[in-house]
């Protein structure tokens, strides 16, 4: 069952990139995220699964719909890059080899009994700081871009107002 679910995830992921029409591509992207949420629920990570369904299938797909309003129904034709597939395949092989080589170490680390229970932040405080830094810079970028977009719209409406006044 899990394998079927994950195969469907990969097929939908490839379809969302290969489809030439934007709305079916978005639908397959949303379905992919939904199936991933179901997979997480199956892994006993119910909260993560529900977050996945609400955030991705709900929030991010709506954000992507905003992109569809700019792009249109059909995706535009772009220059072909034949090396992209080759490099992705190379990365796939490299990652697979790396994973199979580190698998015994991973299993050994998992089997090792934990001597003391510690807080997540005690072991991962550096990671938390790093995530906070990246998150705050992304938030800053979002606010800055929103400001830029507002200023651009303001100047455009100002220009069109001037033009109308000149016509009158």
């Amino acid at each position: 069952m899990t394998i079927l679910l994950l195969t469907a995830v990969l097929i939908l992921a490839a379809a969302s990139l290969m489809l030439q029409r934007s709305v079916p591509a978005i639908i397959s992207f949303a379905m992919m995220m939904f199936l991933l949420g179901i997979y997480y629920i199956g892994l006993d990570a119910k909260m993560l699964g529900l977050f996945q369904i609400f955030v991705y299938t709900g929030g991010i797909v709506v954000l992507m719909l905003f992109g569809v309003t700019i792009i249109g129904v059909e995706f535009p034709q772009a220059r072909k890059r034949p090396w992209a597939a080759a490099s992705a395949l190379l990365v796939f092989i490299l990652l697979s080899v790396l994973f199979y080589r580190t698998l015994p170490v991973l299993k050994m680390a998992a089997d090792k009994p934990t001597e003391e229970i510690h807080l997540f932040a005690a072991g991962f405080s550096d990671v938390v700081i790093l995530f906070a830094l990246i998150g705050s810079s992304l938030l800053y970028g979002t606010v800055k871009m929103a400001g830029m977009l507002g200023a651009k719209r303001g100047s455009k409406s100002h220009q069109s107002g001037d033009k109308r006044r000149e016509d009158v």
Partner: peptide, 19 residues
């Protein structure tokens, strides 16, 4: 890893912004 590879292909093929 397969999903990561598909994503990597999508980014490096450099099509439109949405994809």
């Amino acid at each position: 890893i397969g999903l990561f590879t598909i994503g990597l292909y999508g980014v490096s093929s450099g099509r439109d912004f949405l994809r």
